[in-house]
């Protein structure tokens, strides 16, 4: 089972933002979408989650998500937007429960407590969302998203997580919490598609990378095939050098006037 995208073209207003994009993401893997600002990463995610109309084909578990009823789609995939505003003073527990409310679910409170513990927020149930730090709020939202696809889908089809910059607000330790959760979700058979900015972090946790630039896919594959000097330099429009420690590629910091000798 997989997520297949073919010839996807999308517009924002009058501007064509994505041009005939094609990619494949497998269930059981973490697929990261990377690329410079304005390359169309978030727009692509909005197309995949059904938030934006497009032309072309998207097949989620072999079905066009545009033909799946909203309530059923909500059991198949959950979406973590880049920024989540919350009106009204809900507690952390109540926010997570909203993720479960949309469908009938037994023991919502128990599930909400479990996912809050999973994101490292045990004991935060009664705290008001608005009083939490940015990183804590981000993890409450992640818990809500995990709760939404907590239950297996009838028929055993894989469930999907679509995450738009899930680690943007997080310190290094909590980045690990999130990447571990994504890997664990994939290890249990789910699919994860994440828009990422931090290439080093991505190389360490994604199974596959999709490199976007100017609305087109420039490269797709395991991190060591995408993270190359030539591909990244061309995509980001600046000189980038990639080093390799045993199997994981990483970026070397580049100072414009003080290039460290690499030889």
């Amino acid at each position: 089972m997989s997520l297949v995208v073919r010839n996807l073209t999308a517009r924002l207003g009058r501007t064509e933002v994505l041009h005939r994009v094609g990619l494949t993401a497998q269930a059981g893997e973490v697929t990261a979408i990377v690329g410079p600002n304005g390359s169309g990463k978030s727009t692509l995610l909005r197309c995949l989650t059904g938030d934006l109309s497009f032309s072309g084909d998207v097949l989620l578990n072999g079905r066009d998500p545009r033909t799946i009823p909203g309530w059923e789609l909500a059991t198949l995939r959950a979406v973590l937007p880049q920024a989540s505003a919350l009106a009204f003073p809900f507690t952390a527990l109540e926010v997570v429960r909203i993720g479960l409310e949309a469908r009938g679910s037994a023991d919502r409170t128990g599930i909400a407590q479990a996912v809050l513990a999973r994101v490292g927020l045990a004991g935060f149930e009664g705290r008001f969302y608005q009083e939490l730090s940015g990183g804590e709020q981000a993890r409450v939202q992640l818990a809500r998203v995990l709760a939404q696809v907590w239950h297996p889908v009838p028929g055993g089809a894989p469930r999907w997580l679509f995450l738009d910059e899930p680690v943007a607000a997080l310190d290094i330790a909590h980045q690990r919490v999130v990447t571990d959760i994504a890997r664990a979700f994939a290890a249990e058979g789910g699919g994860v598609v994440a828009v990422m900015h931090d290439l080093n972090l991505t190389a360490g946790f994604a199974h596959r990378m999709v490199l976007l630039a100017e609305g087109r896919v420039r490269a797709e594959g395991p991190p060591d095939t995408v993270m190359t000097d030539a591909l990244l330099s061309a995509a980001y429009g600046c000189e980038i050098r990639v080093g390799v420690i045993p199997s994981t590629p990483f970026l070397l910091p580049q100072m414009p006037d003080r290039q460290p000798p690499l030889r």
Partner: peptide, 17 residues
């Protein structure tokens, strides 16, 4: 209305009309 507190897009992701 509870889901809308999270924004219209998220309410849609939660499967609500």
């Amino acid at each position: 209305l509870n889901a809308l507190a999270l924004g219209e897009a998220t309410a849609g992701y939660l499967g609500l009309p």
